[in-house]
Each structure stands twice: as structure tokens, then as C-alpha cells.
Design a protein around this nucleic acid. Sequence first.
DNA 1: CAGTATGGTGAGTGGCTCTCATCGACGTCT
DNA 2: AGACGTCGATGAGAGCCACTCACCATACTG
Lengths: 235, 235
Amino acid sequence: MRATHHTERMSTPRQRYRDQVRSEIKQIALVQIGAGGAAALSLNAVAKQLGVTGPALYKYFRSRDDLLTELILEAFDDVAGAVRAAAGGGPPRERLHALARAFHGWAVANPHLFQLLAGTPSPGYEAPPESMLRARSVLGPFLPVFAGGHCRPGTEPLREQMRRWVEETPAVAEWVRTFAPEGDPATALAGTVMAWAQLQGVVSLDVQGQFAGLGHSGATLLDAVIDALADSMGL
Amino acid sequence: MRATHHTERMSTPRQRYRDQVRSEIKQIALVQIGAGGAAALSLNAVAKQLGVTGPALYKYFRSRDDLLTELILEAFDDVAGAVRAAAGGGPPRERLHALARAFHGWAVANPHLFQLLAGTPSPGYEAPPESMLRARSVLGPFLPVFAGGHCRPGTEPLREQMRRWVEETPAVAEWVRTFAPEGDPATALAGTVMAWAQLQGVVSLDVQGQFAGLGHSGATLLDAVIDALADSMGL
DNA sequence: CAGTATGGTGAGTGGCTCTCATCGACGTCT
DNA sequence: AGACGTCGATGAGAGCCACTCACCATACTG
């Protein structure tokens, strides 16, 4: 039963204290993740740093995975904001580069957060369905950039697949309509998904320091790859 | 049940027994990783399944990370073999597609192994320098495909960066010369690195089931992306 | 056949997530 | 103002984990 169901006040002192502690926990957890990755997040360590014992945290988060999930959703919002802030006017090619650089920049600034979004953090971890929605809001600004493009022959099968996807999934149609009301939805989706894969690839390699010797510049590779995509989509 | 009657080689029975047990451990570990990812690998569980107690494994592997490292190196060899087997003749575009599909196919067949190579398995894990050599042998077959291509203007900065890399790092020059003795090394490297990023991106998304709704066909996306790259490199 | 290197064990350390009963303190309601 | 009840915090503990160490028995080796 709900405790105080006749007083649905937004912020009782208890509630505000609770929110405060929850946010402090998340903040400390973010520092830990930033230092050693998601696997290094220890509730005991967070509790110690917060000045309480371990079990106390379970009053605020049902489990370690719960905390992780909340951080992941916040990270999605964070990167979505960074990408949205880079969405502007101008020629499509420049807009695409700006979006891509925004994503890449966010990822190299928060490498462990990126890995949180990209990789499977825990063995039995299951991403909540919400995360897919958040991912869509990250990719949304890419849609209008490609809405005016066209697919080369080699991209036609992908476009066809996107066409079927948007037909069979109303939520996807809605999503595309929100960000790119004009142009061909299938083309916009094809370009966006390709861009998504490119970003994922370049940023993964960059963040994991895989080309530590290549003159350490993932930005150059990103520009090259995105430029090739822009060519391919006729932007 | 072991037949140690006859010693044919210079390996003593002890040594052969040791190798046998080591290989059994690795095999069980691979099954566990295949079931739950690298984080789910438990030496205790491996020991139990092998019929011994936990500490016994430390006679064969110095630590969990040591075992993991050895599995990673073997996985590199595995995927390198798969890619090498797909290297054939014909037009460069078809050869590129064949290589890319081989890599993608290996990854979707061994998703957890791919994540072992791509992601950072443990918090404090440091990849041994050998892994970079193995990665090069995976990417080697891509080099000759791009050796005959040329870079578009948008790829020139990347090519310039590759040129400097190959100049400053003799091992890289040697690597390129081995796989692509003809053509411009910088161009070959630029194309290969771009292909590497593309593969990493598409396969990451595919393996993690990120587009479970897109008609679940990472192959279509892969083809589209690789085709765009082939266009961009003039194959 | 004696010596010894090697593999295996049990006990133990310190860490982790997470549960549970209990205690105390604080906000809430009468 | 006082009593109530909820919530936060605790210590103890279960059940994992990786890893160390002293010790023992076996089986290869000279």
C-alpha cells in the first residue's frame, strides 16, 4: 500500500533528502566508472566514500544493475543533448560532420560512459527497452540530414529494408516524422543507420585506444569516413 | 585413460599432460564465455567442471587475466584465419566484400569472442602488445585490396596521416610490404583503417543485437557500408 | 631405488553483491 | 505537544569471487 496516498505532494522533506542522496550516489558512481570502467563500479566503495555502510545503498537502488541502468539512461540523455546542440543549418555535408564530431567529441570526453552505452556491462545485464528510445533520440538529428539525399545502387537493399521497417513499426515512422518531416523516410533511415555504424566503429576504436600509434587522431579517421558516407548519399 | 606408454617427441609425459590440461581449461573457459561473456568466466566454475578444486588451476595459469589473454590471442588467430581464407582473386570490390563478410560472419558466429577482442573485458585489464600484432594479421588481407585504389579529397588527410605513420614506424612499413608489396602504402593503409572502423561499427551493433527490429540483418548494412567505402576508394 | 619436481588439496584472506532482523531518528498526524 | 509509524542505517551473515600458502602424495628422473 502506498504510505501517504492522500498527500501527493511533490517534495516532502523525506523525498527531497532521498533525491539528494540518490544523486550523490550516482555522482560518486560516475567518478568510479570514469576511473575504471563499469566493471569497477562497487557499491561498497561508493558507500564508503559516501560515509555509510554497504547495505544502506539498497534503500536507494534495488541492485547494482539498477544503478547502472539509471546511469546509462542519463548518459543517453547527455549524449543526445550534445548531438542536438550541434544540429544547425547549412549544407547537409557540414551538418553531418558537425553531428558526427559532436558525438565523437562527447565519447572521447567520456570514454567510459560511451562504453557503458556501447558494450554489455555485466554478464547478465539486459538493456531496458527505454534505452532504445533514448538511442533514437540521439540519432534523431541525423535523420533530416539524409532526408534530402539519395541512395546509390549498393545502398538500395538497405533502403528497402528500412522501408519495410518503417512500414511495420509505427513507432519508427513516428520517430522519423518527428525529426525529418520531409523527404523519404527510408533514405533518411538508411543514411542514419550507416552513420550510426560508422560512428560506433570509429569511436570504439578511438576510445579503446586501438590506434595509439596512428598519430593518435581518431578525428581524422572520422572525417574521412563521414566524408565517404556523405559522398555515397549524395550530400 | 591416458596413453603415456611411448614418448615419441622430446616432450616429456609431464609436459604433454600439462598441455592437455591447459587446453581443456581453455576449452571449458570458451564455453563459459560463449554462454555469458567474458565477465562470466569464473575460474572456480571451470575447476569444478574439470573435476578439481579452484587453486589447482593456478598451476596452469598465473591468473584469470592470463587465461583471458591467451584466449584473446587464440581468438585473434581464429578470426585472422577466417579472413585469410576469404582472400582470393577477382575484382577488388568483390574481394573487399568477401573479406568483410568473412569477418562479419566470424563475429556473429562467435559474438562473445568478438566482444573479447573489441571490448575491455576486465577493469584493470591491459592488452598485451602481441594483440596488436595479431590485429595486424587480421587486417593484412585488406591491404592489397586498397593498394590499387586512390583517395578522394576528403580522405587525403587520413592518407597523409598514414604516410607519416608508415614512415615513422618500420614495423608498419614491414607489415604493409608483406601483404601489399605493390601500390601506395599510405592509400592501402587509409582504406584498410576505414574498413576496420566500418567493420567494427557494423559488427558491434549486430553482435549486441542493437538493431533487433531492423529486419535483423546486419549483413545488409554491412554490404551498404562496404559498398560506399569501395566507391569512395575507387575500387 | 632414492630424490625431487609437480599437481592437487584444504584452509584462509579479502573482496564483492545482496538479505535480514533490528535499532534509532525523524516527519506526520491527532 | 505527544504518540505513531515509516524510513534510513546498521551489523551479521550467506554465498559468490580471485588468489595465496603450507602441505601431501604421486609419478617422473637420475
